[in-house]
Protein backbone atom coordinates (compact mmCIF):
# COMPACT_ATOMS: atom_id res chain seq x y z
CA UNK A 1 0.00 0.00 0.00
CA UNK A 2 1.70 3.13 -1.22
CA UNK A 3 0.19 6.55 -1.88
CA UNK A 4 -0.51 7.58 -5.47
CA UNK A 5 1.86 10.30 -6.69
CA UNK A 6 1.31 13.90 -5.61
CA UNK A 7 3.14 17.22 -5.64
CA UNK A 8 4.27 18.41 -2.23
CA UNK A 9 4.38 22.00 -1.02
CA UNK A 10 6.18 22.85 2.18
CA UNK A 11 4.32 26.08 2.95
CA UNK A 12 6.45 28.89 4.29
CA UNK A 13 3.51 31.20 4.97
CA UNK A 14 -0.21 30.85 5.49
CA UNK A 15 -0.84 32.87 2.32
CA UNK A 16 1.11 30.32 0.29
CA UNK A 17 -1.03 27.50 1.62
CA UNK A 18 -4.24 29.48 0.97
CA UNK A 19 -3.10 30.32 -2.57
CA UNK A 20 -2.71 26.64 -3.40
CA UNK A 21 -6.19 25.97 -2.04
CA UNK A 22 -7.66 28.89 -4.03
CA UNK A 23 -6.07 27.72 -7.28
CA UNK A 24 -6.36 23.95 -6.95
CA UNK A 25 -8.85 23.48 -4.09
CA UNK A 26 -10.52 20.17 -4.90
CA UNK A 27 -7.25 18.52 -5.94
CA UNK A 28 -5.30 19.75 -2.93
CA UNK A 29 -5.23 18.53 0.66
CA UNK A 30 -3.64 20.06 3.71
CA UNK A 31 -1.30 17.72 5.56
CA UNK A 32 -0.46 18.48 9.17
CA UNK A 33 0.47 15.53 11.40
CA UNK A 34 -0.84 13.12 8.77
CA UNK A 35 -2.22 10.57 11.20
CA UNK A 36 -5.68 10.58 9.59
CA UNK A 37 -4.70 11.51 6.04
CA UNK A 38 -1.72 9.16 5.58
CA UNK A 39 -3.77 5.96 6.06
CA UNK A 40 -6.25 7.33 3.50
CA UNK A 41 -3.39 7.99 1.08
CA UNK A 42 -1.73 4.62 1.69
CA UNK A 43 -5.01 2.84 1.05
CA UNK A 44 -5.69 5.18 -1.89
CA UNK A 45 -9.05 6.17 -0.44
CA UNK A 46 -7.77 9.70 -1.06
CA UNK A 47 -5.75 10.64 -4.14
CA UNK A 48 -5.01 14.37 -3.99
CA UNK A 49 -2.78 15.82 -6.70
CA UNK A 50 -1.09 18.14 -4.28
CA UNK A 51 -0.33 18.06 -0.55
CA UNK A 52 0.33 21.25 1.39
CA UNK A 53 2.39 20.73 4.54
CA UNK A 54 1.54 23.41 7.12
CA UNK A 55 3.67 22.17 10.01
CA UNK A 56 6.38 24.81 9.54
CA UNK A 57 3.94 27.69 10.12
CA UNK A 58 4.66 29.02 13.60
CA UNK A 59 1.46 31.11 13.63
CA UNK A 60 -0.61 27.90 13.53
CA UNK A 61 1.31 26.29 16.35
CA UNK A 62 -0.34 28.11 19.25
CA UNK A 63 -2.75 27.34 22.07
CA UNK A 64 -4.21 30.58 23.40
CA UNK A 65 -7.16 31.90 25.40
CA UNK A 66 -9.47 34.01 23.21
CA UNK A 67 -12.58 35.63 24.75
CA UNK A 68 -13.59 32.76 26.97
CA UNK A 69 -12.49 30.16 24.45
CA UNK A 70 -9.26 28.25 24.08
CA UNK A 71 -8.04 28.43 20.47
CA UNK A 72 -5.97 25.52 19.25
CA UNK A 73 -4.07 26.22 16.03
CA UNK A 74 -3.98 23.87 13.05
CA UNK A 75 -0.38 22.79 13.65
CA UNK A 76 -0.80 21.91 17.35
CA UNK A 77 -0.15 18.23 17.86
CA UNK A 78 -2.36 16.21 20.21
CA UNK A 79 0.64 15.41 22.42
CA UNK A 80 1.44 19.12 22.67
CA UNK A 81 -2.09 19.99 23.79
CA UNK A 82 -1.88 17.18 26.37
CA UNK A 83 1.21 18.89 27.77
CA UNK A 84 -0.34 22.39 27.78
CA UNK A 85 -0.02 23.51 31.43
CA UNK A 86 -3.58 24.84 31.84
CA UNK A 87 -5.28 21.83 30.22
CA UNK A 88 -6.71 20.29 33.41
CA UNK A 89 -8.23 23.59 34.50
CA UNK A 90 -9.31 25.23 31.24
CA UNK A 91 -10.05 22.24 29.02
CA UNK A 92 -10.96 19.55 31.53
CA UNK A 93 -12.86 17.51 28.96
CA UNK A 94 -9.85 17.46 26.62
CA UNK A 95 -7.60 16.28 29.43
CA UNK A 96 -9.97 13.30 29.79
CA UNK A 97 -10.53 12.61 26.08
CA UNK A 98 -7.04 13.13 24.63
CA UNK A 99 -5.51 10.02 26.24
CA UNK A 100 -8.14 8.03 24.28
CA UNK A 101 -7.27 9.69 20.98
CA UNK A 102 -5.19 7.17 19.05
CA UNK A 103 -2.04 5.94 20.73
CA UNK A 104 0.99 7.74 22.18
CA UNK A 105 2.72 6.91 18.88
CA UNK A 106 0.07 8.76 16.83
CA UNK A 107 -0.70 11.61 19.27
CA UNK A 108 2.97 12.55 18.96
CA UNK A 109 2.34 13.64 15.36
CA UNK A 110 -1.43 13.91 14.87
CA UNK A 111 -3.01 17.34 15.32
CA UNK A 112 -6.24 18.30 17.07
CA UNK A 113 -7.52 20.19 14.01
CA UNK A 114 -6.51 17.36 11.67
CA UNK A 115 -8.74 14.92 13.51
CA UNK A 116 -11.61 17.41 13.34
CA UNK A 117 -11.03 18.02 9.60
CA UNK A 118 -11.08 14.25 9.01
CA UNK A 119 -14.46 13.99 10.84
CA UNK A 120 -14.49 10.30 11.63
CA UNK A 121 -17.81 9.72 13.47
CA UNK A 122 -16.11 7.77 16.27
CA UNK A 123 -13.16 10.14 16.84
CA UNK A 124 -12.74 11.86 20.19
CA UNK A 125 -11.74 15.38 19.10
CA UNK A 126 -14.92 16.04 17.07
CA UNK A 127 -16.91 14.62 20.00
CA UNK A 128 -15.25 16.94 22.49
CA UNK A 129 -15.82 19.93 20.21
CA UNK A 130 -19.53 19.10 19.88
CA UNK A 131 -19.89 18.36 23.61
CA UNK A 132 -18.42 21.73 24.55
CA UNK A 133 -20.27 23.62 21.80
CA UNK A 134 -17.05 24.85 20.20
CA UNK A 135 -16.38 26.44 16.84
CA UNK A 136 -14.22 25.78 13.81
CA UNK A 137 -12.33 28.72 12.31
CA UNK A 138 -12.13 28.27 8.54
CA UNK A 139 -9.83 30.34 6.41
CA UNK A 140 -9.61 30.88 2.67
CA UNK A 141 -7.67 33.39 0.59
CA UNK A 142 -10.87 35.47 0.52
CA UNK A 143 -12.11 35.36 4.07
CA UNK A 144 -12.25 33.86 7.53
CA UNK A 145 -15.48 32.37 8.86
CA UNK A 146 -16.56 30.63 12.03
CA UNK A 147 -18.80 27.58 12.07
CA UNK A 148 -20.41 26.06 15.16
CA UNK A 149 -19.38 22.45 15.77
CA UNK A 150 -22.90 21.09 15.21
CA UNK A 151 -23.06 22.81 11.80
CA UNK A 152 -19.55 21.76 10.81
CA UNK A 153 -19.98 17.98 10.88
CA UNK A 154 -22.32 16.92 8.08
CA UNK A 155 -21.83 13.16 7.92
CA UNK A 156 -19.23 10.40 7.84
CA UNK A 157 -16.00 12.23 7.00
CA UNK A 158 -18.05 15.07 5.53
CA UNK A 159 -17.85 18.64 6.78
CA UNK A 160 -18.95 22.16 5.90
CA UNK A 161 -15.40 23.07 4.76
CA UNK A 162 -15.22 24.29 1.16
CA UNK A 163 -12.47 23.16 -1.21
CA UNK A 164 -10.66 26.49 -0.97
CA UNK A 165 -10.74 26.53 2.84
CA UNK A 166 -8.57 25.09 5.57
CA UNK A 167 -9.09 24.87 9.30
CA UNK A 168 -7.01 27.63 10.84
CA UNK A 169 -7.93 26.79 14.43
CA UNK A 170 -10.66 25.29 16.55
CA UNK A 171 -12.02 27.03 19.63
CA UNK A 172 -13.18 25.12 22.67
CA UNK A 173 -15.16 27.08 25.30
CA UNK A 174 -13.04 27.07 28.47
CA UNK A 175 -14.51 24.67 31.01
CA UNK A 176 -14.10 27.16 33.91
CA UNK A 177 -14.60 24.61 36.64
CA UNK A 178 -17.67 23.00 35.07
CA UNK A 179 -17.62 19.28 35.74
CA UNK A 180 -16.81 17.06 32.79
CA UNK A 181 -16.69 13.32 32.25
CA UNK A 182 -15.64 11.07 29.40
CA UNK A 183 -15.92 7.34 28.77
CA UNK A 184 -15.24 5.13 25.78
CA UNK A 185 -15.60 1.49 24.81
CA UNK A 186 -13.24 0.18 22.10
CA UNK A 187 -11.78 -3.18 21.17
CA UNK A 188 -8.33 -1.96 22.19
CA UNK A 189 -7.50 1.23 24.07
CA UNK A 190 -6.68 3.80 21.41
CA UNK A 191 -8.67 2.17 18.61
CA UNK A 192 -11.74 3.84 17.20
CA UNK A 193 -14.61 3.93 19.65
CA UNK A 194 -17.57 1.58 19.45
CA UNK A 195 -19.26 4.18 21.65
CA UNK A 196 -17.68 7.26 23.24
CA UNK A 197 -19.56 9.67 25.48
CA UNK A 198 -18.70 13.07 26.88
CA UNK A 199 -20.71 14.97 29.49
CA UNK A 200 -20.44 18.60 30.54
CA UNK A 201 -22.36 20.16 33.43
CA UNK A 202 -24.65 23.04 32.40
CA UNK A 203 -26.78 25.49 34.40
CA UNK A 204 -29.89 23.34 34.07
CA UNK A 205 -28.33 19.90 34.00
CA UNK A 206 -26.00 18.10 31.64
CA UNK A 207 -25.03 18.25 28.00
CA UNK A 208 -24.31 14.69 26.85
CA UNK A 209 -22.58 13.98 23.52
CA UNK A 210 -22.20 10.60 21.86
CA UNK A 211 -19.71 9.49 19.21
CA UNK A 212 -19.34 6.23 17.31
CA UNK A 213 -23.08 5.69 16.81
CA UNK A 214 -24.56 8.25 14.41
CA UNK A 215 -22.78 9.59 11.30
CA UNK A 216 -21.36 12.39 13.42
CA UNK A 217 -21.10 13.22 17.10
CA UNK A 218 -24.48 14.30 18.50
CA UNK A 219 -25.16 16.28 21.69
CA UNK A 220 -28.35 16.61 23.71
CA UNK A 221 -29.25 18.66 26.79
CA UNK A 222 -30.64 16.81 29.80
CA UNK A 223 -32.34 18.62 32.66
CA UNK A 224 -31.88 17.23 36.13
CA UNK A 225 -34.59 14.58 36.18
CA UNK A 226 -35.81 11.91 38.58
CA UNK A 227 -34.28 8.50 37.83
CA UNK A 228 -37.26 7.04 35.96
CA UNK A 229 -37.69 10.07 33.72
CA UNK A 230 -33.97 10.06 32.99
CA UNK A 231 -34.20 6.39 31.94
CA UNK A 232 -36.82 7.36 29.39
CA UNK A 233 -34.90 10.39 28.14
CA UNK A 234 -31.68 8.38 27.69
CA UNK A 235 -33.55 5.59 25.95
CA UNK A 236 -35.08 8.08 23.53
CA UNK A 237 -31.62 9.55 22.85
CA UNK A 238 -30.14 6.08 22.26
CA UNK A 239 -32.86 5.28 19.68
CA UNK A 240 -32.68 8.69 18.01
CA UNK A 241 -29.00 8.10 17.18
CA UNK A 242 -30.11 5.49 14.65
CA UNK A 243 -27.41 2.95 15.53
CA UNK A 244 -26.42 0.38 12.92
CA UNK A 245 -24.90 -3.09 13.07
CA UNK A 246 -21.36 -3.31 11.81
CA UNK A 247 -18.27 -5.49 12.03
CA UNK A 248 -17.43 -4.24 15.54
CA UNK A 249 -20.77 -4.23 17.34
CA UNK A 250 -24.51 -4.55 16.95
CA UNK A 251 -26.87 -1.60 17.02
CA UNK A 252 -28.49 -3.02 20.15
CA UNK A 253 -25.15 -3.17 21.96
CA UNK A 254 -24.46 0.43 20.99
CA UNK A 255 -27.85 1.55 22.38
CA UNK A 256 -27.12 -0.35 25.59
CA UNK A 257 -23.79 1.43 25.92
CA UNK A 258 -25.37 4.84 25.33
CA UNK A 259 -27.96 4.22 28.08
CA UNK A 260 -25.44 2.77 30.52
CA UNK A 261 -22.55 5.18 29.99
CA UNK A 262 -25.01 8.09 29.72
CA UNK A 263 -26.33 7.27 33.20
CA UNK A 264 -22.85 6.98 34.66
CA UNK A 265 -21.59 10.23 33.19
CA UNK A 266 -24.70 12.22 34.12
CA UNK A 267 -24.35 10.95 37.70
CA UNK A 268 -20.68 11.84 37.65
CA UNK A 269 -21.10 15.47 36.57
CA UNK A 270 -24.21 16.23 38.67
CA UNK A 271 -22.92 14.57 41.83
Amino acid sequence: MKPAAFDYVRAESLDEALDVLRNEGGDARIIAGGQSLMPMLNMRLARPRILVDIMRLAELRRVEPRQGNIAVGAAVRQAELLEWPALDRDLTLLSLALPWTGHAQTRSRGTVCGSIAHADPSAEMPLALVALGGEVVLRSARKRRRVAAHDFFLGVMATDRNDDEMIEAVEFPATNGRRCAFREVARRHGDFAIVACAAVATERGVRLAVGGVADMPVAREFDILPASALDGALNAFAWDLDARDDFHATARYRRDLVRMIGHELIAEVTR
Binding site: G34, Q35, M38, Q105, T106, S108, R109
Partner: peptide
Amino acid sequence: PARACLTL
Protein backbone atom coordinates in the same frame (compact mmCIF):
# COMPACT_ATOMS: atom_id res chain seq x y z
CA PRO B 1 7.67 8.01 18.84
CA ALA B 2 6.24 8.10 15.32
CA ARG B 3 4.79 5.66 12.82
CA ALA B 4 7.25 5.66 9.93
CA CYS B 5 4.50 4.29 7.63
CA LEU B 6 2.36 7.38 8.35
CA THR B 7 5.26 9.77 7.79
CA LEU B 8 6.38 11.11 4.43
